[in-house]
């Protein structure tokens, strides 16, 4: 019994009061205490892992691709943005010939 627990003497036997003789704490209570630091450690480890992932992925870009359903080919347009940019400036438009590839650009 921990030092913070209080013990009480009863006049009649415990059974009279429907009390358990020499009660013991359920071991599940110990598991519940362990769950808190585990949750904290798991959350912290996840945040650190995702932070490493974010840092390692900084500056990531990929080519813009299109799919031609008629030929079944994926065409690499040579752009490296996730979304189309709001420009119609000819000088900024790719002059490279589109390359047909399916695997290596992914």
């Amino acid at each position: 019994m921990s030092s913070s627990s209080a013990s009480t003497k009863v006049f009649y036997p415990e059974e009279t009061y429907e009390l358990i003789k020499e009660p013991k704490a359920d071991p599940i209570l110990d598991l519940l205490d362990v769950a808190k630091p585990i949750a904290g450690a798991a959350a912290a480890a996840t945040v650190v892992g995702l932070g490493v992932s974010y840092a390692r992925g900084a500056g990531y870009k990929r080519d813009y691709t299109k799919y031609d359903p008629k030929t079944g080919e994926t065409i690499n347009l040579g752009a490296t943005v996730n979304e189309p940019q709001t420009t119609t400036d000819e000088s900024e438009t790719s002059t490279e010939e589109p390359t047909k590839d399916g695997e290596e650009q992914r």
């Binding site: 752009a79 490296t80 189309p84 709001t86 420009t87 119609t88 900024e92 438009t93 790719s94």
Partner: peptide, 9 residues
């Protein structure tokens, strides 16, 4: 049809 074309890197 947003008049937008993918921009070269």
């Amino acid at each position: 049809d947003d008049g937008v074309e993918p921009k070269k890197a």
